[in-house]
Amino acid sequence: MKIRSMLATAGLLLAALAAPALASESEVALKTAEWSFDGPFGTYDAAQIRRGFQVYKDVCAACHSLKYVSYRNLSGPQGPFHTPADPKLGEDAVKALIDGIEVPDLDDAGEPITRQARLSDPFRSPFANEKAARAANNGANPPDLSVMVKARAGGADYLYSILTGYEEAPGDVVMQPGMSYNRFFAGHQIGMPQPIVSDDQVTYTEPGAPKASVDQMARDVTAFLAWASEPHMEERKRMGLSVLLFLAFLAALLYLSYQRIWADVEH
């Protein structure tokens, strides 16, 4: 049909026009990595997320909060420390990891105290409030990382690019005091100093863990933050498959019924 082909041509033309326009939005093409959670069947690599948690805890947590995630999420059914056969094992593992983390609370007399973090606590925030954060960070406020992977165009690739995009500033760039040069950051001047600087900055202790190179740590912490942003992703994709199979079956039955019912009508 003529009308359909005209519309299809228009659609293709618009897509061709839109593609370069969308691509030109970020100044530098991001580095891309293969993520275990890419694609319709992608899942999280629990070992990688555990390593990423360690990088977050030893490096990022000094400045960045993760306030919408709780320690219990690590050992819960969606978490990287979950042990389905005996949930207690995973809980104990997380308890051991958070041993020594002190969180603010009130005692029975209403006096502010700090106490050992429990599984039910949200991740401890490094600063009491935004003013304290800015005072400690050259005026910048390190953003909360709970949904960071969903909050940036490019998602995991963007985070990975930023973490590995630190460079010497080119000679013609005048840097503001306290700023670092990052190839992938909009405007290239980023308030965050290079967080992952050298190999083995974090010690991976799990048997079979890869060498803690700068690149590996950047990938691992990105995977951890992808999980933190979307902890229900695996469940979502699994459910999606069942839903689509069900709907395909339903549609097939409805189509056959449609053929049968209309068989005696000229239409």
Binding site: L241, L247, A251, L254, Y255, S257, I261
Partner: peptide, 26 residues
Amino acid sequence: PYYTVKDGFATAIFMMLFAVFVFYAP
């Protein structure tokens, strides 16, 4: 049943598109 079944079939196809967004590109 003529249009309940036809609309039902079309709605099921539409739901599949809907589900692709919800579950795979939310």
